[in-house]
Amino acid sequence: MSDLAIIDYAMGNLRSVANALRHVAPAGDRVIVTSDPEAVLAADRVVFPGQGAARDCMHELRTHGLEDAVREAARTKPFLGVCMGMQVLLDQSEENGGIPCLGIYPGAVRYFGATPHDPHTGARLKVPHMGWNGVEQTRAHPLWDGIDSGARFYFVHSYYVAPEADALVAGVTDYAVRYCSALARDNVFAIQCHPEKSAAAGLRLLANFMRWDGQA
């Protein structure tokens, strides 16, 4: 039995995330939603979800005293970042002229642009990138177990991560550019899409996380 903490910093659809994780959790495992840094640090594994703006995310983390707890959890235990919880792991975001983020991994969060175009057809694309799209797996990882490369997940975002180290990339998606939609290193896995809204593939990824020991 183990405890999973979903970090509540007043941003994101936490109910959907919690319900999906409880649905796939092994019998006896406990899923809690918490804004208490001590509860985050005491948990066996941590999910860092979120949506919205990087500026607001960083402000709320500091307001709730969670910034150090997020860094420590990402250093020491199985850790899943989702959407905004992936983006702010990097150094900074282009949002509002530049927003400093957690700086756990070198790299930037970039804007798709006001009028992006499909590089193959020239068709104008909408921002935010909203809807179903494929994730091509760039390397093996325990969280990909049972999920086909190219499986479709649900996305809602206007910015994408651009890590400096190619070794961080675990999955890529095409939308205006070919961008990193999943990253992984050691005990951390993070994904741009919303697995809790991504049907069978998303539930499989969450189930894999619930059983993951943090070893890549």
Rank of each mutant, 00 (worst) to 15 (best):
L89K: 07
A114M: 14
G103V: 12
A123N: 14
L102K: 00
I104R: 07
D145N: 13
G85A: 00
D148S: 13
I104A: 04
E94R: 10
K126Q: 15
Q87Y: 05
P106V: 10
Y111S: 11
E94I: 03
S149V: 07
A123K: 14
F153Q: 03
A140V: 12
P142F: 04
M130K: 11
K126I: 09
I147H: 01
V109S: 04
G85Q: 02
Y154A: 05
Q92N: 12
G103C: 06
E136P: 11
T138A: 11
A114G: 12
Q92C: 11
F155K: 01
H117S: 13
A108I: 14
N133D: 12
N133Y: 09
R124H: 08
V127I: 13
M86Y: 02
A108D: 14
G98S: 05
Y111P: 13
L102V: 07
F112K: 02
C83G: 05
A151G: 08
P119H: 10
R110N: 11
N133S: 13
S149H: 07
I99N: 00
G113S: 10
V135P: 08
G146E: 06
C83D: 06
L143D: 02
E94M: 12
Q87V: 08
Y154Q: 04
H117W: 04
S149F: 06
N133K: 00
P119Q: 10
D148A: 15
A151C: 03
V156W: 00
G150V: 12
F112L: 14
V127M: 01
P128G: 07
D91M: 08
H117F: 09
V88N: 01
S93W: 05
L143G: 01
P106D: 13
F155D: 03
K126D: 14
G122N: 06
W144Y: 13
G122I: 06
D91T: 14
Q92F: 07
P119R: 08
G103I: 09
I99P: 00
G85M: 01
P116C: 04
G113N: 12
D118A: 03
D91N: 15
G131P: 02
P100N: 12
D118K: 01
F112P: 00
D145M: 06
R152T: 14
K126E: 15
Q137S: 11
M86C: 04
T121V: 09
H141E: 07
